[in-house]
Amino acid sequence: MIVDLATLVLATGTKAVFQNPAYLLGVPLVALGALVLAIALSPFELRWPQPINEADLDVLEDPPEGHPEAAEYIKVGIFLAAVTALEVALYYMDLADGALLGMLLALSALKFVIVVLWFMHLKFDNKLFSIMFTGGLVLVAGLFTIVLATLGSSLV
């Protein structure tokens, strides 16, 4: 399954590059993302020019209580990238419209929730923030329902 998926993604990417050279623009972008990930995951500490004044050196401390370590953020980032790749792969698969719509919406919602909970710290922060943000989302859902149900949409 994974091999088939990888083959599909690779074949699609190669075909697309030959069809439109503009896709080559994506190569440095992928390389940039890979470089950032490689730096982030590297077990070796990067050596930057050291300041002359030793007093300028920062004293490293532990993260605040309740907040995740940097390694956990990176794991979440890798998961989000994998979900995005899955979304794109699903787009190219020959699935029924209803099934595709449901899966894409579910994966998008999953990414949304993960970013809000981990990166925006709602999982660890004061509940008041969650109430306020959820309030905004509920209002948006109401807006969507009223507008799309009243005027009709090609989505539903």
């Binding site: 994506g26 979440v76 790749a85």
Partner: peptide, 16 residues
């Protein structure tokens, strides 16, 4: 879609 997927990946990595 392939091009926009890469843009999306870039923005996700910026969040990390």
């Amino acid at each position: 879609i392939p091009f926009t997927s890469i843009s999306t990946f870039v923005l996700l990595m910026s969040s990390v």
